[in-house]
Design a protein around this nucleic acid. Structure first.
Lengths: 345, 345
DNA sequence: GCGCATTCAGAAAGCGCTTTCAGGCGTACG
DNA sequence: CGTACGCCTGAAAGCGCTTTCTGAATGCGC
């Protein structure tokens, strides 16, 4: 065929030359942007095929000043919560022929900012921030410094589950109301003695769920003393730790609320390891309804969030042209009572 | 400040102009590529900051003919198996300042090829294919047509868990040996009556695990009749279906092997729903050791694969310069006996 | 004090593509 | 038969950046 050892990329120029047409014509054929005489079109197509031509997306992005890449920043893809949301995101992205750049920050604010900057540099057409932000002035300033100019130059930004940044579209789970509803369901069951296992209070998601839960408890005349709120990392192991710590302290509520299902999974393990029966000795409830919790034994009572749908919606928002007022879409949580909760003994 | 309503991007040219230096100098300052007089450097830095300059990664990629994007193609991010591998991938990518474009194909061959093409167009410096390929001639040809030229022009490709494509680096779990070891562990427990719940046989992962399991069984003098191998989709629900189907057929083995943990989770649910006790009535084993299965009740016996590590290794391979001979890294599976298996009644 | 070697800044040539702007030809019309 | 008008192709100007090459200072040695 050609001189072997092709070490360099095939360019549109090469295709045009091989087809003996101009660059412009080759471009037009490949995009169907304008009518081209049939024989020329054939030649271009043939040449492109023979040379295994692949357009250089960077050159295209540069020339057209637009790209079809959207960025998604989350805490950790391997957390089922983010995985479920990502799934929805990916599906809609695929439908719209968008490429997704997915970043895991592992909850490191610096890394989050670095990714935002990289995405801006990539001229990603949109950036999706999934998961609570950080209650950190420095970080907020830095993030604004990245995203502000990005938005001003036509970049689209949306967030899932964080309110602070005001000017962007948002998909917001109703954490507060959901937690309140859960609390009511639990008090309706007869519980009066609670403990809560939470992640870092600085995360708005945590704060909202806690506040909603506590408020509804108060309405029912139940108090939640501060020492019944146990803080630990926002992971399965964190849930285990928190539950173990609770047991160690001798705190014996009739019902435990873990602010996320992931933490509830850890708590369930801790209870099992310590011989505490769920729900006979203690009821346990989570939040999110990640896919696995229905398969646990006992199946977990939780507040269901339509995670995949939230991801889909966020991606749809971001692909639409911006509105003057930023859109806020709220997703209510639905209480799902399963075997992990029962009336207190 | 400047004329408001900035609708266009700040370019290096703008920065240079504001700092009253040449384009070249500005570029040099921003990259530290060469010594620049201190006052000029200061001016450039100040201007870049004031203008919130963000380099255009596309222009950079074009000018330097390289990018720091790596592509990852998997079946479904929300499957814990891929999520765990992705986690390792992400971590190493972050360490090396690489941006990851993550695509879920939802097991659609056409989509896989479309992504490969897009990644090639993006001049991704490397592409990682995770998960079994498809036993489809047409697909193989199309994939080769994308990846061949890509590799020839300096693109790096690696695969996790698929052998067919020969010329690329690979991270291979020892599915066959692992399944064999699992079979031995199970026969050692005293089981002689087995059933296997599998995903599509066309997937090499499935074929290998099945073959290894069957071979070791044969060595132990145990036969696995074809009607004891039940095929279903490669998901939690597939596992449920397969187990339900097995029960419906009246097949009552003393031990069931689900070729993936995800399917085992479904099977466990099916057994529970049908009043079949695990392991009292039937033992159940999976494969992969995805994080959740240790928390199930009963905890699942499985063949552990170091998923996160496999992802890390794959990313490392791909970031290294290519070798003449493609590298193959094998990861053995380790048998983890948990409560879901016991000696037959 | 002059010539030469060094530094370091700037001009300019691409990187591969899109798209505007002319220009060439063919047709329809006067 | 000449002019006007379309339609299609090609030339060329960028898109924003990196990097080589050139040239102007400066510092040094003799």
């Amino acid at each position: 065929m050609d001189d072997s050892g092709e070490r360099t990329h095939v360019t549109l120029q090469d295709v045009a030359r091989a087809a003996d047409v101009s660059l412009a014509t080759a471009s037009r054929v490949l995009h169907g942007t304008a009518r081209v005489r049939d024989d020329l079109r054939e030649r271009v197509l043939a040449a492109a095929g023979a040379l295994a031509y692949a357009p250089n997306a960077h050159a295209q992005a540069l020339a057209r000043a637009s790209s079809q890449v959207v960025g998604v920043i989350c805490h950790d893809v391997s957390d089922p919560y983010f995985a479920a949301i990502s799934r929805g995101v990916m599906r809609v992205a695929a439908e719209h022929d968008q490429l997704v750049m997915l970043a895991s920050t592992f909850r490191d604010p610096a890394r989050e900012i670095a990714y935002a900057a990289a995405l801006r540099a990539q001229r990603a057409r949109a950036v999706l921030l999934i998961g609570s932000g950080f209650e950190d002035r420095e970080w907020e300033r830095a993030m604004d410094a990245e995203l502000g100019p990005y938005v001003r130059t036509g970049g689209r930004v949306a967030v899932v589950s964080r309110h602070r940044s005001l000017r962007v579209d948002a998909v917001l789970p109703e954490n507060r109301a959901g937690a309140a509803a859960l609390a009511r369901a639990l008090t309706d069951l007869g519980h009066r003695e609670f403990a809560v296992l939470t992640g870092p209070r600085a995360l708005t998601t945590v704060a909202d769920r806690l506040a909603g839960f506590r408020a509804a408890l108060a309405d029912a005349g139940v108090e939640l003393p501060e020492d019944r709120v146990i803080e630990a990392p926002f992971t399965r192991d964190g849930g285990y730790q928190a539950a173990a710590e609770m047991l160690r302290r001798g705190t014996r509520p009739t019902c435990v609320f873990a602010v996320t299902d992931v933490m509830a999974i850890g708590a369930l393990a801790a209870f099992r390891d310590h011989g505490v029966r769920v729900p006979a000795d203690v009821s346990l409830a989570g939040f999110d309804d990640i896919p696995i919790v229905a398969d646990l034994t006992p199946a977990l009572t939780t507040a269901r969030l339509p995670l995949e749908e939230m991801g889909e919606r966020a991606m749809e928002l971001i692909l639409q042209p911006p509105r003057a007022r930023s859109r806020i879409e709220r997703f209510p949580a639905e209480i799902v009572l399963r075997a992990s909760t029962a009336a207190p003994a």
